[in-house]
Design a protein around this nucleic acid. Structure first.
Length: 478
RNA sequence: CCGGGUGUGGCGAAGUUUGGUAUCGCGCUUGACUGGGGGUCAAGAGGCCGUGGGUUCAAGUCCCGCCACUCGGACCA
């Protein structure tokens, strides 16, 4: 048997899922801990995934007319305090700047935990007429929240994200924007990350501080826990009023615009890891994989092998595929294991035997299938396999989601299902906070969302027995 | 923030019970042979033992404080 080297340090996900996750983050060279507690460094390979997410998602935002801006990283305390709920929601986790050089500042400045206030402040100075509306802004940046417990990608004191902020003339338009962006996220997860999600609305308890409504997409990880993967908020005119953002309407009266915000973060990378990864390491969806095909030459010293491998690399690169020729002098077996750890969707093996037959061998990361492929049709075969891998990954994740979603008709049943199987538990709900708290306390689950696709499971809330208003999903969340 | 665990070359560990001047594997460097699942051999480089204090002739080892990471919980998106 071959000796195990690097991978021996990866914990099996069945033994300890949390440790498996941490091992992958480090072994696949995605992140490293910084010397500031709770902060992480995104290493080149991890950042490359984020760059692909940014590039593809940003293109979607642009299609619907959004423009990117850059706001200051610091927010004056007085400005942050103008909207009460937002302040209360974020107060425990705001970091402050109190010194400028050696001078104490007259007013302390908050590192942005989110930028609603900055956008509102800006709009209050530039908005004059309904003709300027809507304003559809987005920014890619990092924010700081002083979290107590941190984990790579899932929760850290600084994280990278995009935050969209828009204002509209009417409530209807703003609500439509909120829905559009939620759908944008859900489609992105499906089409780019191969992650199925449940779209829904948050309960009052779980919604964003200051929002009128918060919409969410919830994904299920391989350990059957829930991960909130993006959110979209409708604010009504609450912030507009708090920050005195006004415009002159069509009827020549002063009006407050209606506002939305929506965000997704590097947490999406955590979702990718826990949705697709296996005991050999990362499994990356082809559309965001920094390397889509790794070429491993076999017997590279034999005449013509490296030249042929280089030729194949050039052909694939010319076809727009992200390809890497692994021509180091490591053994082929080492390379196989290494690029499996890094989740590269396709491996291309080329050696003397292949060259005689004018073929190469493609190997899929997700299922290990080896596919002898004629060199003549390499580009199309690779493209087809990349699409196949994406589709297979999505289907597998969808099965996981569906097979671990259960219906419950009593709190005992919900409790038992969660304890024995985990996953999403669907019930009806009366809408009362007490029942939500009871489910948390007794069942150990928080509400994930009230799905947009509402179902009628029964007439009553299984927790209190009163008339049910909504169907709702419960789960243990990250 | 509460509770458990862990900090020893880049990584993983042994050594701590019984104090005596740091060991092993991997990785790294150089060279040769190899090459279709983590190859072989040879010669090398690399360590203020997380940190601050204390006890002692002597501390990786004993005592006290602190810090970081990690697992679980609470809090939180």
């Amino acid at each position: 048997m071959a000796k195990e080297k690097n991978v021996e340090r990866i914990t099996n996900m069945e033994d300890d899922f949390a440790q498996w996750y941490t091992d992958i983050c480090r072994q696949a060279e995605l992140v490293e801990y910084a010397s500031v507690k709770g902060f992480t460094i995104l290493r080149p390979y991890g950042y490359a995934i984020w760059e692909n997410i940014q590039r593809l998602m940003d293109a979607e935002f642009k299609k619907t007319g959004h423009e990117n801006v850059a706001m200051p990283v610091l927010i004056p305390e007085s400005l942050l305090k103008k909207e009460g709920e937002l302040v209360n929601g974020f107060a425990p986790e705001v970091a402050w700047v109190t010194m400028g050089g050696s001078e104490e500042l007259e007013e302390r400045l908050a590192f942005r935990p989110t930028s609603e206030t900055m956008f509102c402040d800006h709009w209050s100075s530039i908005l004059q007429t309904y003709r300027q509306l809507p304003m559809l802004y987005n920014q890619w940046c990092s924010v700081i929240r002083w979290e107590k417990t941190t984990r790579p990608f899932l929760r850290s004191r600084e994280f990278w994200w995009q935050e969209g902020h828009t204002i509209h003339e009417t409530a209807e338009e703003a609500i439509a924007e909120t829905e559009q962006q939620l759908n944008c996220y859900a489609d992105f997860c499906r089409d780019v990350l191969a992650i199925p999600v449940v779209k829904g609305r948050k309960t009052d308890k779980e919604k964003f501080a200051g929002a009128e409504a918060t919409y969410t997409i919830e994904a299920m990880m391989k350990d059957h826990k829930a991960l909130q993967s993006a959110t979209s908020h409708y604010f009504g005119d609450k912030f507009s009023r708090a920050y005195d953002v006004t415009f002159t309407g069509r009827d020549n009266t002063t009006q407050y615009p209606f506002q939305t915000s929506w965000g997704s973060t590097t947490r999406l990378i955590g979702a990718v890891i826990m949705t697709h990864g296996d005991n050999n390491g990362l499994v990356l969806p082809p559309r965001v994989a920094p390397i889509q095909v790794v070429i491993v030459p076999i017997a590279a010293h034999k005449p013509g092998v490296l030249e042929k491998a280089g030729e194949l690399r050039d052909r694939l690169a010319a076809a727009g595929i992200r390809v890497k020729l692994e021509d180091s002098d490591q053994s082929p077996g080492w390379k196989f294991a290494q690029y499996e750890m890094k989740g590269v969707p396709l491996r291309l093996e080329i050696g003397p035997k292949d060259m005689e037959a004018d073929q190469c061998v493609l190997v899929r990361r997700n299922d290990g299938e080896k596919l002898p492929t004629a060199l003549a049709e390499l580009e199309s075969a690779v493209q087809t396999q990349l699409d196949t891998v994406h589709e297979m990954m999505y289907q597998k994740a969808l099965e996981n989601l569906q097979e671990h979603t259960y219906e419950a008709y009593s709190i005992e049943e919900a409790k038992q299902l969660q304890a024995e199987k985990g996953g999403f538990i669907k019930t009806m709900w009366c809408g009362d906070l007490e029942c939500e708290l009871k489910m948390k306390e007794e069942g150990g689950m928080s509400s994930r969302c009230m799905p947009l696709e509402q179902e009628h499971l029964s007439d009553v809330c299984p927790i209190c027995g009163k008339k049910a208003k909504y169907s709702i999903i419960w789960g243990v969340a990250y």
